[in-house]
Every structure is written in C-alpha cells, then in structure tokens.
Nucleic acid binder design. Structure first.
Lengths: 155, 155
DNA sequence: ACTGAAAAGAGCGCACT
DNA sequence: AGTGCGCTCTTTTCAGT
C-alpha cells in the first residue's frame, strides 16, 4: 500500500464524484500541471486503490423501483451449504449484494426488482428453491438516502 | 423514458463494467461505427439513465475493513424525527447507505469503518447522540460477495 | 517530483447516404 | 439511423529542471 498525500486524497475524492473529469481540470484543482496528476492517478490505478471506473445507472428509469433487504438464515452451518448459497446467489441478477454476517441471521442480501409481484416470484420461485434456507425476513425500502459509493478518505 | 434496444442494453452493460472504454472499442463491440454509439450514449446521459461516471476505490487498501449493518428503531414515528435522523446521517462520512424501511425496524444503515474500536466509537459517540433512537441492532459483515453496482437490464 | 511541449488517440460535430 | 471524415481536446510520453 503506497502512502497517500493530501493531493492524492483530493484526486480520489474528485474521481469518486466524477470520473470523466479531464486531467487538466484535476490538475487545476490541485494546482499542478498535468504530468504529475497523470502519474499519481496511474499509480493509484496500478496499486489497485482505484479498482475501476463505472457508469452508474438510474434503476428507477429502468422500472426497478423496489429494493428489499432479506435476512436469510440457513438450516445448519456447514461449509458446503454456504458455498451452495453463494453460488446460487451469483446466478440471480436481481441480487445486488450478498453479505455473510455475524448476527441474528446468516446472510443479508439486497434485491432490486420492479414491483411486489416480482418480489413474490423471487421469494417463492427463486430463493425458496434452496432447501438449505430455513428462514427469510424481508424489509422493503420506502426511501433511501446516501446511495453514494464515495468513501471518505482520511489520512 | 426513452426505449432501449438491444444495442443500448449492451452498451449499458459494458459501461457499467468499465466506463473508460473508448467509443471506438464500444463501437466494435456492437458492430457499429463511432457516431451512432456516441449519440446513443449521449442520449442515455441526457435522459438521466446514465447518472454519472465514478471511480471505485478499494476500501481494504485504505484500511477500512469493517462493514456493519445497523437496524435502527426510533422512539416514536413523527415526521421531524425522521428528518432529524436523515440530516444527521448525512453528516457522518462512515455511513454509506441509509434506507428507511417497512419492517421490524425503521432504518437500515450500512457503515464502513476501520475496526471494532472505530465501530464502538461510532455507536457510543455518534449514533447514540440522537435521542430519537430507541434501539440499534448491528450485524457485522464477515464476507461479502457481489458488491457490484451493475444492474441487469432486461427488455 | 515537477514543468512544458510534442505525438498519439479519443471525443465530437458535420456532410452525406 | 447509419457511415466516414476532420477538427479539437485529452491522454500519454519524453526531454529537461
């Protein structure tokens, strides 16, 4: 892990908000010429700190307005059941996030769907197909704030 | 909402994986010349379907290895308490996501931190400052899969 | 580690089919 | 809606401080 100075941090914060800014713009932001800014960014890309650049799509405009969090509990806690669960989750497009957690349940999954009909279908015909699942508790998102992916970088 | 054809969908899927691809590359992908690809992308940007382009940073390389989900319940359900809660969440950098949900609790928040010490500090000195909170139940992420932001686009 | 300039490449508009 | 060309801006490399 390469150490970051104040300029790197400002660049990262800027790129997390808008990755399409030109190096020239970024250079003006940090009061440098383009070359060092270019080098700094390339270094952070190569180290893996900047993992990727992605387009963010508005799910609402695709008709995907229902977000649900499902707390899933498995019947017993055996290694291959976890792998089976994980593998199956990877085949489901509507499943956006899967976290294996320590707490009152085993997995927290975030699901993005069109509506309640799709949700019902998802639960009854997709999730419930797994016999390793003993319990599912769902919460529906009414409103969400702060869906930003930007990580605050402190020294 | 403008309707999407198969080419738009392929472009969106490609841009969700890697926003730094050149239009030339994308044009080859969909077997078109650069101009229509450029027009299609601009149209999707202007309609708001493509909301933004962002750099994705690896939290592990910044030492942020602890992800927690906190289920927060408020004391009573009054409008201004929700706004107070929302406003305060917006001031906290470690809070990545806030969802107001229908279920057994009121809010699900996702928190990104360095370690358990930071978590303890977060709960005791930041979250608990809000008197409107009556209960917090936390689950810690041991392992997470599918942390991709890519939305599956079907017709 | 930075500046400045120069070559290579991408974005973007235009005339046309 | 599509192709192909041309101008402009950006990225990327290189010599020099």
């Amino acid at each position: 892990m390469t150490s970051l100075d104040a300029i790197d941090i400002r660049l990262l914060e800027a790129l997390q908000k808008d990755a399409k800014q030109s190096i020239k713009q970024l250079a003006e932001l940090v009061n440098l010429s383009v070359t060092p800014v270019h080098e700094r960014i390339k270094k952070m890309e190569n180290s893996g700190l900047i993992k990727e650049y992605v387009a963010v799509i508005d799910p609402d405009l695709l008709g995907k307005t229902l977000v649900a969090y499902c707390q899933v509990t498995l019947v017993r806690h055996k290694e291959d059941q976890f792998q089976e669960f994980e593998a199956y989750m990877n085949t489901l497009d509507e499943v956006m996030e899967v976290s294996y957690v320590a707490g009152n349940y085993d997995f927290l999954i975030k699901v993005l769907l069109k509506d309640m009909d799709e949700f019902q279908y998802f639960i009854l015909h997709k999730l419930s197909k797994l016999e390793v699942i003993s319990n599912i508790q769902s919460s529906f998102v009414i409103k969400s704030f702060k869906n930003n992916s930007a990580i605050k970088i402190r020294k």
